[in-house]
Each structure stands twice: as structure tokens, then as C-alpha cells.
Design a protein around this nucleic acid. Structure first.
Lengths: 389, 389
DNA sequence: GTTAGCAGTCGATGAGATTGAGTGCCAACA
DNA sequence: TGTTGGCACTCAATCTCATCGACTGCTAAC
């Protein structure tokens, strides 16, 4: 396109302009650019270049006697130059790694923590949309009879999560009956993917007959569990948007906060993008969804080929893209590292803390109870995408 | 106090002023009051009364040539008059009851629903702070062995909730061992109150010996469960505050939203009040916690003497106290009704829907599986606080 | 192609002037 | 003594107008 044909000086001027505007949020004048970025040429020269850039659709003037402001096209061009250059300070990198090292827990907890870290380090609103639905499969299903004619449906998935719903069991059901039902359920569902659960397979219809009511209830539980966990959305630092002058207008701010606090909207915002790319950057018109003048930068997080989710930030068009992209890349690396660590360090800790019951047998596996360690064949692997700096 | 000594006319004027200000958010002039509320006297008369009311500390002028604005003292006086008079339209009452009838689930779900209803019907930000900690007691504890050397800790409480944490079990543990442990655990904990759980009772120390590591893990789970569920906070319609002109200032709005989105702050706001009263109304200075110029109205919800929690709204001082108090009272009644209904209607529905498994035995209890029905000896009783209008 | 200089545009700022919505006060009246 | 109409006064809000200054675009010279 036309943008590729920019002369070197035009590029330099455009970059300077965007840099300056990202910091100041004020229209940038030819004099600003000259004094801060290019003292070797006169402001008049810069002016004529700016004039050309305006004609090309990169920038505009809010009014005749004002400086220039970047248009979405300018940001897009700007961003392309920094896609693969990290410029995080080592302090920042250390901070991020530290936070991840200190956070324990399952995929859900880590996703939430990732969102927090992103928001803390970028100072923008961060979002994390987990894409579990297609990947989670059931490992074990159990029906546990309780008192009061109730039973608990336990579902162990390779995401390490458990349903905790109760169902009723009929007055007449015996303990053995429930146990039989439990066994059949496990046979039917274990190994299945959560999305596959629509109805019972035809081939076991006859077996089911006697436990029809129980099984229907379990089906409902599984479906609701599927819906609940299919897509987990975390938003952190929503109020940070209020620190930026472009959201001074109360209406805009409210709109933003409304969209951001609706999980469905957030998931839509993130998912509407191209799914085949590592980073998705939507600026201005791209980033619709009811919020004006904003940009969304997201990165896909995969572990060993499995899509974990998409994380990123949403903020003003005038976003510090360099920093945001660097942070997202750093998070990607830390996430991978943490998962590997959980696997290897588990071996050392387990004996110390928890095996006073089984005093001295050999711990063949060293699983220490973190949900991650259950999934190592799924999420954690040796192959590492080490591409820092 | 002085406020008791207000003449009838002063009272009428003060009420008119507050009513008008609640609607308009604009300083109210003597002429406004005369034309809209008291055409029988002249504005000059009203002026002199206003002057007196100002001296008594009920109202003030933002500036010399402006009308009057109520001070917190005015709201307090205003509120006292409407403490026990409901003025909800029957449409509103029906709406609220309907919403409750349609919502199923346990205490937690109902609390969340109550918050939603309150916010929807009052158009203010609503809060619900559940006070479960002191009331919930454990009915049953079970340890369910799963594959992968893990076990699930199930806790059935009279709040109907369940912990869903997993713990590790040692390599060497047998199925029987886990079952024994489960039985002992149940013996130890069932009937206990969640707050009582600090360590194991001394008298069973010897029994515990062999299962030390398992039991310590269960203890941790119970404690974390206790912490998680001790105080549940729900906030709905936080963004509604942006609709009110007193929060036009972005700083104030941010402050409000920050406080409101921090569960601890919310709990503190609600708990700082007097605990012996049905309704707590905090206006201005009373309602500190970092938010200026706001009022908090909360009601205590008890079922059969048990404190369920406190629910209410937080909004501008200029709050429609009449409506808010009426809504909170209506919620109180509906909540009680719903719980009674869950108990009684269960009998009729159970056979139709769920007993195709146990076709035609007599349903001695008729428990239909709602968590509430488990608690009828706790929460649901015949005595009713029927005090509508 | 670059530059300095200059005229022109237009938002921002600030100083009056004007308006009008209030009040307080006072004298008159019942 | 309480109520009322009238009047002077205050002050925020609004408008106008002049000024300022931060830009630009244009042009002529280098």
C-alpha cells in the first residue's frame, strides 16, 4: 500500500509524532518535532512533510491552527515497526517473572494473575479471555451420595476443575443403586470432551433406563458446568481508563466501563479478531463493540499447541504499543516458564511438606497437588519458545 | 433535640424542600416551594421560615443568590417520617415478588439476586453483604478418592454450599484408609460451626495420628472455605452512580467506583454501622469510607433469628429514601416468602418432575432439591413479620 | 529541495457588561 | 404577632469583545 512508500524522513517524522502524542495527548506541532526529534532540519521542512502525511491519511489537524494528531492508520504503521522489538527494562522483566513465580494455582488462577500483572505493568485495562471450551476433557465423573437424599456430582477434568452441584436422588434409591449409577456415568463420560456432551450415547440407552432421572440431572449439571467454564473472562484495572484524558467525557467512560464489565462483550471484542495471528491489534474502527476511540491489543497464549486464551489490554488509541507488546511477550514467556517450573520443582517440595503420612516411600511422580501438575501431559512440555529480545 | 421542636409548617416546608431536591438536584427557592407545594402562603413567609431552618442547621445556601439545599440533618429528619410507611406501587411489589419466585438456588444465589433486584428497582448501586461466618455449620464432611492420588473434600453445610478443593493423598494410602479417614473427619466436624474450626479436638488426637497429613490438608481446606464464604459481598449496578449529577466530577466517580469494587471496603462500609437496628441509614459524615457526599441505606435480613446479611443501596445523599426503604422492606418480605414457598410447594412438584425413577412410593418429606429446603429447621419458620403498608 | 519570513486562522483566555434567579429586609396590613 | 408585597442587593451564569499566541500555508530567496 501507499504506506510502504513513505520516505525515510516521513517515517521518522511520523514516528516522532506518534511518540510525542502517546506521551502528551496533545496535538504535535512542526516545531515540537523539530526541537525534540529532528534539529537538523527546519520546522518549515517538517511542515511540508506533515502536509504530505496528512494528504496520505496518516494524520489530521483538529482545527486550522493546531498541530497534528495521528489517525488510526498512523498507529498501524507505527506498530508494524515494533512488532518484534522488546524494550522492557530488566526491572520490568524481573517484576513480571517474580509475580508469576509467587502465584500458585490452576489455569484459572494463573489466568487471573496474568490479567493483574498486565494491568499493573502497562497501566491500561487488561483482559484475559480463556478458551477452555474446546480443550477441556473429562477425566472422571463421580456421584457421591450425601445425607438428605442428595448426591454431589463430581467432575474431574484435565483443567483440574470440579463441578460442585448437588442433585436429588429419589427416595427409593439404594446406596448400591447410586454407586452403580456412578460407575455407569463414569464409563459414559470419562474421556469425553465437554463440548461433546449433548445427550447420552444411543448404545447405552438400555443401561440408562433405570436411572433416567438421575442421569438427566447429571446431564444438566455437566452442561451448566460447560457453559460456566467454557470461556473465562478476567478484566483488571477497568477504572484505569479514567486516568486518560480521552475518557474525560462521562458518557464515554460509562460506555467503556459497561462494555468492559460485561463478560460476553469482552469475549466478543477479543474474538472478533483474526484467529491465526499471534498478536491482534485493533485500532479505531477495527475495535468496534460500542467503544469509540480505543485500541485493543491481544496476544494468543498457547502451551504446547493448546490455546490457553487471549490476553491483552484495551485503552485509548494513543496507546504505548511498544511497551504493551513487550509486556505481552514477556508474559508469554513467563507463563511457559512457570508451567515448566511447577512440574520440575514439585518433586523437591512434596516430601518435605506433605508426606509425613506416607513417611518414606518413593515418590515416583512427585505431584505436589497443584492443578498444573496434573496436566503436564497437556500443557507443560520441554519445547520452549524462547525468543526474548 | 431541636429538630423535634419544628413547627408543623417548618416540617412541611422542610419536607417539600427535600422532596424537590431529591428530584431536581437543584437548589430549591422559596418560590418553588410556594408554587409547587404551598400556594396558601406567600414566598416571603416561606423565606423567613427557610431562614430559620438554615439557622437550625437543616439547610444551607450554596451562595447568596441561590435557593436552599438540604444538609445531612435535613435528610435524617426527613427519613424519620417515612421509616414505617411503604409507598411502593403494587406493580413494583409484584415485580419484586415475581423476580424472587423465578430465582432458584441456594443462599448465595438468592443474595446475588436480591442485590440485582434492589439495584433494578431503585436505580442506585446496591450492595449485599452476607454474614454467613457465624451461622453456618457443617452437616457432613466427606473425602472422595479420585484417580491421580487425589481426593476431593466435600463439605455440606446448612448454607447448602460445598467446598470443592482437592487434596493429595499419599502414595501408600489404601482405599479403605481413605474411607476410614473420611468417617473420622465426618465424626469430628459434622455439627460444628465453621468459626469453631481452629484445630482438632484434643480427645481424638490418638485416632488422628495415622492420618495426620490428610487431616491437616482438610483443615486447610475448611479454613480457606470459611474465609471465602465468611462474608460474601455482592455489588450490582455500580455504574449507575454515573447517572447522578453529583458524581459528574471524574475524581469523585473514580473514588466511588474504586471503593465499591473492593469487597473489603464494601463490607466495612456496611458493618461500621449500628448492628442492633433493622435499618441503618448513614448520610454524609456518617458514611465515611472515602466516599464523599453519599448515603448508605441498609437493612438487616434475618430468617428465624438468623442473620442472613445486610442489603441496601449506596448513592447520593439526595436519595429517594422513601422508595429505597420501601423496596428494602418488600425484599425482606419476599425473601421470607420465597423460603417458605420452597418448603411447601416442593411437596407438589416433586412427584411430577423427578420421581419417574421411584414411581409411586409415598414421599414422606417432599424435599425437592432446592438447597433452601435443607435448611428449613434453620431458616424457615411460620412466624412472619407481616407489616406491609 | 530547503529555508526564513510573513500573513492568516482559530482556539484559548480574560475582562467587562448584562441578565436573572435568588435572597434579606422593611414597612404596611390584619 | 404573623403575613405580605415591594424593593434593594448579591452573585452565578452567560454573552461579547479584544487580545494572545500557537499553529499553519504560502512565497520568495538561497
Amino acid at each position: 500500500m501507499a504506506k510502504k512508500e513513505l520516505s525515510e524522513r516521513k517515517q521518522k517524522i511520523l514516528t516522532a509524532l506518534v511518540d510525542d502524542y502517546i506521551m502528551s495527548a496533545e496535538p504535535v506541532s512542526s516545531k515540537d518535532i523539530q526541537s525534540k526529534y529532528m534539529p537538523e532540519v527546519s520546522s518549515a521542512t517538517i511542515r511540508s512533510e506533515l502536509s504530505a502525511l496528512e494528504e496520505m491519511g496518516f494524520i489530521e489537524q483538529p482545527h486550522t491552527s493546531a498541530g497534528r494528531v495521528p489517525l488510526p492508520e498512523a498507529y498501524r504503521h507505527y506498530v508494524e515497526k515494533f512488532m518484534d522489538r522488546s524494550n522492557l527494562s530488566s526491572t520490568d522483566v524481573d517484576f513480571i517473572r517474580q509475580r508469576f513465580q509467587n502465584s500458585l494455582g490452576n489455569v484459572r488462577t494463573l489466568s487471573a494473575e496474568a490479567a493483574k500483572i498486565i494491568s499493573d505493568t502497562t497501566n491500561y485495562t487488561s483482559i484475559f479471555v480463556g478458551q477452555n471450551q474446546n480443550t477441556i476433557s473429562i477425566q472422571e465423573v463421580k456421584l457421591v451420595p450425601m445425607s438428605n437424599k442428595k448426591a454431589v456430582v463430581l467432575v474431574l477434568t484435565d483443567g483440574g476443575m470440579l463441578a460442585d452441584k448437588t442433585i436429588d436422588i429419589p427416595e427409593s434409591a439404594t446406596l448400591e443403586g447410586v454407586e452403580t449409577a456412578s460407575r455407569i456415568l463414569n464409563k459414559v463420560f470419562s474421556g469425553k470432551c465437554l463440548t461433546d456432551i449433548e445427550r447420552f450415547p444411543a448404545e447405552i440407552e438400555t443401561e440408562l433406563k433405570d436411572f433416567q432421572s438421575i442421569f438427566n440431572e447429571v446431564l444438566t449439571v455437566l452442561k451448566s458446568y460447560c457453559a460456566e467454564n467454557g470461556q473465562s473472562v478476567f478484566v483488571e484495572g477497568a477504572l484505569k481508563i479514567l486516568d486518560y484524558p480521552e475518557y474525560t467525557n462521562k458518557g464515554d467512560a460509562k460506555k467503556f466501563l459497561q462494555v468492559i464489565s460485561d463478560d460476553k462483550c469482552v469475549a466478543e471484542l477479543v474474538n472478533s479478531g483474526n484467529h491465526d495471528i499471534e498478536y491482534s491489534i485493533k485500532i479505531g474502527r477495527d475495535a468496534e463493540g460500542g467503544i469509540d476511540n480505543c485500541a485493543i491489543v491481544t496476544a494468543e497464549y498457547k502451551i504446547n499447541g493448546q490455546l490457553l486464551g487471549q490476553a491483552g489490554v484495551i485503552g485509548p488509541e494513543r496507546m504505548d504499543y511498544k511497551r504493551v507488546l513487550s509486556v505481552l511477550e514477556c508474559i508469554r514467556q513467563s507463563l511457559t516458564t512457570v508451567m515448566n517450573d511447577k512440574k520440575t520443582t514439585a518433586k523437591n517440595n512434596t516430601n518435605k511438606n506433605k508426606n509425613d503420612f506416607a513417611k518414606d516411600e518413593n515418590d515416583v511422580n512427585g505431584d505436589n497437588g497443584e492443578n498444573f501438575s496434573e496436566n503436564k501431559e497437556e500443557y507443560v512440555d520441554g519445547s520452549d519458545s524462547n525468543k526474548e529480545d
